Simulated scan of single mutants.
Amino acid sequence: MTRASGVGSMPGEDAAAYAEAVRAVLGELPDLPHVPELPGRGATASMTGRALAVLEGLDVDLQPSGWRLVGTSGAPGVDHRRARSLLGQDLDCVEELTQGYAGTFKTQVAGPWTLAATVEKPRGDRVLSDHGARRDLAESLAEGLRAHIRDVRRRVPGATSLVVQVDEPALPAVLSGAVPTASGFSRHRVVHPPEASALLETVLSAIAEEGAEPWVHSCAPGVPWGLVRGAGATGLVVDLSVLSAADHDTVAEALEAGVAVALGVVPTTEPAGGLTDTAVVQRVERWLDMLGLDPEAGTLLVGPGCGLAGASTSWARRALQLSRQVATALT
């Protein structure tokens, strides 16, 4: 059966918008709802801020240049505390509105390489520049996710299974040496695939050991999906519009091998002239036909191409509706 899914982010800037996002996700994605993210509320609610809120054993603070590690004092700064408090408030809302829900549930977190490419070391420059720092950050994220998974399970007791989606939009840039240094005049060195796989595996293994399903999402072009599978991902969340010819084959092989594939096919902002579910269904069917796949082969999901934070509130809900309608038609 083809199911509808969402990537995670939604539009909105306050608690009322967050509650509405939870209701929209529960109403439009009944087979796989998720914990919404509203990055429009500021840095503490951003993809990076949300992931830093679950770290175990590392503290961070917020500088004009962005998030920065400050050590292992056990006394997090005010911005780190705010990020954790906001995540707790959001989960309180999820807990309240999912009463009576039963089924698979999903939460999201930024991955170790995206954090390494966006968070600074205590004395400046990205964590990416330091082998030891990026390893420590990955291990801290892995340990923090263990507690986070248990917390989500406690709050959503009807979740028969839990998916943890690891967002890695920066992974292609990390592997190609395209992440700029602090000065902006140079680029960080290329990270070689074995190390990239090892740190990603550190996080994915922790998720699996807690009994959750580790999925990896990126809507950037050039993601090495074979490496992601090799690191332990049991689900791939991809944007159909950025897949290369080789990617199509890799994703198809994953689907046939039993790996869940969430195919991003609905635009993240409203297209001129509108969009019908029939047009999206035809697009998915053409893709399946091109690869010789059946809609019922493996675990196929459909959803927006990427996050919906930049969409209007009306289009965000419409995008989720379209995803559900397309999934129903394909089934």
Rank of each mutant, 00 (worst) to 15 (best):
R3N: 05
A4M: 04
V7D: 04
M10Q: 15
D14T: 14
A15K: 11
A17L: 03
A17R: 08
Y18W: 13
Y18L: 07
A19E: 11
A21W: 05
R23W: 06
A24L: 11
E28F: 00
D31K: 03
D31V: 05
L32W: 00
H34C: 10
V35R: 01
P36F: 05
G42N: 11
T44P: 01
M47T: 06
G49S: 08
G49V: 02
R50Y: 05
L52A: 07
L52Q: 02
V54W: 01
E56S: 13
G57C: 07
L58N: 05
D61C: 07
Q63N: 08
T72P: 03
S73L: 14
R81Y: 10
A83P: 04
A83G: 06
L87D: 07
G88I: 03
G88K: 04
Q89F: 14
C93K: 01
L97A: 05
T98P: 01
G100F: 09
G100R: 12
T104A: 15
T104R: 04
F105L: 13
T107E: 07
T107H: 00
Q108I: 06
G111C: 07
T114Q: 05
A117M: 03
P122S: 08
P122I: 09
R123T: 12
R123L: 15
D125S: 12
R126P: 00
G132A: 12
A133P: 07
R135D: 06
R135S: 14
L137S: 14
L137Y: 13
S140H: 15
S140E: 07
S140K: 13
L141V: 12
A142T: 12
A142Q: 07
E143R: 14
E143G: 14
E143A: 13
G144V: 05
R146N: 12
H148D: 08
D151E: 12
R153S: 13
R153D: 15
R155T: 09
R155Q: 08
P157R: 10
S161K: 00
S161E: 14
P169G: 06
V179T: 00
A182Q: 09
F185C: 11
R187N: 10
V191Q: 02
V191P: 00
V191I: 15
V191T: 09
H192P: 06
P194Y: 01
P194S: 11
A196Q: 03
A196N: 04
A196D: 01
L199R: 12
E201P: 04
T202N: 08
A206L: 04
A212D: 00
P224D: 08
G226Q: 15
R229Q: 10
R229I: 14
G232N: 10
G232Q: 05
T234K: 04
L236S: 07
L240H: 07
L243R: 09
D247W: 13
T250I: 14
V251A: 10
E253M: 09
V259Q: 01
A260L: 09
A260F: 02
A260T: 07
G264T: 04
T269D: 10
T278M: 04
A279H: 12
V284D: 00
W287C: 03
P295N: 12
A297W: 02
T299C: 08
T299G: 02
L300M: 10
V302A: 00
G303L: 01
G303D: 01
G307M: 04
L308F: 09
A309Q: 10
A311M: 11
S312D: 15
T313F: 09
W315F: 12
R318W: 00
R318I: 00
A319W: 02
L322E: 00
Q325M: 03
V326R: 00
T328I: 03
T331N: 11
